[in-house]
């Protein structure tokens, strides 16, 4: 085997090993570390186990926001068909308002409440999280042009 061929062989072998290692890592990681997005209707029908992290999105129900001690806040996320109560300890985004679309990250606790670790609202008045738009369309609550 001449040196050139040998070098190509090393190169190919290194690529194959790296590729296989990478594929194992990536597939394992995708299996365990993907966050699903559910609308309140999905939560009602799919029985997500408590403690499994996911993202929930919808509108903040009007009149549902209440503040507790310290920086605790509770509100209800709705897509028009189903409601999910949410609890959050932290600073809400600057554009968190009742009636507006939000996406929250967290998990259900044992009592049917969503414990949010992070709440995201739209960046500006014109923008609605696309997942929320989609969830509202599915529940028939989406009005084109009006949020």
């Amino acid at each position: 085997m001449n040196p050139k061929k040998r070098r190509r062989l090393y190169f190919a072998a290194a690529l194959v090993v790296a590729g296989m290692g990478g594929a194992v890592l990536v597939l394992g990681a995708l299996k365990d570390n993907v966050l699903y997005f559910y609308s309140p209707s999905d939560v009602a029908t799919k029985h997500v186990s408590p403690g499994v992290a996911f993202r929930i999105g919808g509108l903040v129900e009007k009149g549902s926001v209440s503040h507790g001690a310290h920086a605790d806040v509770r509100f209800v996320v709705t897509d028009g068909r189903a409601n999910v109560p949410v609890e959050f300890h932290g600073v809400l985004p600057d554009l968190f308002r009742e009636g507006q679309g939000i996406v929250a990250m967290g998990a259900m606790n044992g009592t049917g409440t969503f414990d949010a670790t992070e709440v995201l609202a739209k960046h500006d008045e014109k923008y609605m999280p696309p997942e929320v738009v989609d969830a509202l369309k599915r529940s028939g609550r989406w009005k084109e042009g009006g949020t």
Partner: peptide, 11 residues
């Protein structure tokens, strides 16, 4: 709809 977040990149 899913999102791939920091845990995926961490591993």
């Amino acid at each position: 709809k899913i999102s791939v977040g920091p845990p995926y990149f961490a591993v």
